[in-house]
Amino acid sequence: MADEEYGVVQEGFKRKSREDIEKDMKDTAKNLFGDDINLKENSPLGLLITLISYALALVWKALAGVYNSAFLDTAVGKSLDYVGQYIGIKRKPAAKAVGEALFTGQADEVIPNGFRISTDTDPKIIYETTRSGIIEQDGTITLPIKAVEAGEDYEVAQNQLTEFINPSPFVYEVTNNEPTYGGQDRESDYEFRQRYKESITLSGASTIDAIRSAIYEVAGVRSVYIRENHTMDIMDGLPPKSIEAVVLGGAEASIGQAILESKAAGIETAGAYTVDVQDNAGNSRSISFSRPTSVPIYVDVSLDISPVYPVDGDIQVERAIIKYIGGTDRDGNTHPGTNVGEKVIHSRIIGEIYKIAGIDDATVTIGTSDNPAGIANIDIAGNSVAETDTAKVDVIHQ
């Protein structure tokens, strides 16, 4: 084939394989030296062509990588970060979980900034105070804490931080009365691509899509749904001229700041949570929003498989379902899945399953409790979000 059929063509980028390179070089050699030239693999010219074809194949591979690095669906790693700059978003770095710890000890004892506490697990999950404090006369003080390591795995449930790393004889006990939150792994390529698509309207001014996109920029946010009342009357419980952002994940103060900076002037906010944030003039503003109620989704899958079904096919099916609905897979990866208020569509689950090789037939039932028997879509209210996990997905073979 002619060289002009490779490279950037009408269909995109067509990469030349090593076999094509070798064939073109041998054809050229015959044109130069005659058809009787010795091009066998062990001949001097044959060996030279083989060596050069391997090197040129690597060049073509690099060219394909450069071409693909410019596009959202094919760029990876740092190249994908550069694609994010097209619309002004950056990959979310790993974030440390935060919370509060209640210390009990001798009154007037100073607990310094950086005082470390931990769980009693192996390995320990270590937190440290982010400011100093003095134990009050009642023998207690509550101080803000932050995980020493970043990532989702360093969030802890309530009353798990009970040990001292650097103990003091005048500090007797410690615990966290509430779970810690805000821990986040570095955003994966898959998660970044999904957020990119959600953030296309980030540059818009004060629109619902722009507000949603701004909230998605907050570390730890997985899903956002925004209700709007543009009338002068109370509508569906919303005050006149107001919005209610229903947000899954993310720190409350950061969410409030994102709403303040993206909403239109004069528009009120509604919701069960209220935080005080500062505007550019340094004035304190109260911003309200809500958290969604989690709706557990159970999925039973019965498969009729062929010999080409992968060894880890059941795990792939499970992961495909979790990716679509949303939740945490067996590797600890959290997938955004469906949005707040978005229904779970039965046929979409089947479609995701059939993307895996070797499945001849699949029967899928879904529901909001164990042993599901439904095949109808599951409606999700505007203040709720569908979630599933490994324990809620059951895959068997017919």
Rank of each mutant, 00 (worst) to 15 (best):
K61T: 12
V364P: 01
A2D: 03
I89N: 10
G341L: 06
V395R: 07
N339I: 01
V393I: 15
N333R: 14
P336S: 13
A70S: 09
S242N: 07
E173D: 11
G105Q: 12
G114S: 05
Y354R: 14
K355A: 07
D300P: 03
K61G: 14
N113L: 12
V311K: 13
Y82F: 12
E342W: 09
D314V: 01
E261H: 04
D389S: 14
Y181S: 11
N377G: 03
G77I: 03
P123I: 05
V171L: 09
N383M: 10
L51A: 15
I87F: 06
W60M: 05
P292C: 13
A147F: 00
V385A: 13
V110M: 12
G204W: 09
G77C: 10
A362K: 05
L248Y: 10
A386W: 08
G220S: 06
Q137A: 15
V221W: 08
L202T: 02
I37A: 11
Q398K: 12
E387K: 15
P123E: 09
Y181K: 15
A245T: 06
S290C: 08
I350Q: 04
L32G: 02
D379P: 03
Q257F: 04
D108R: 06
K14G: 03
D394T: 11
D20K: 12
E19S: 12
D370C: 03
L63A: 15
K26I: 00
V344F: 04
E100R: 13
A373W: 00
R348P: 00
H230T: 12
I350S: 08
T121E: 14
I145Y: 01
E4T: 04
N383R: 07
V277E: 06
E244M: 13
G256C: 10
V385K: 15
F164C: 05
M25W: 09
V277S: 09
T28F: 13
L143S: 01
I380T: 02
D20V: 07
I234C: 07
L48M: 14
R193A: 06
G77D: 08
G358R: 08
T363A: 13
E228H: 14
D331Q: 07
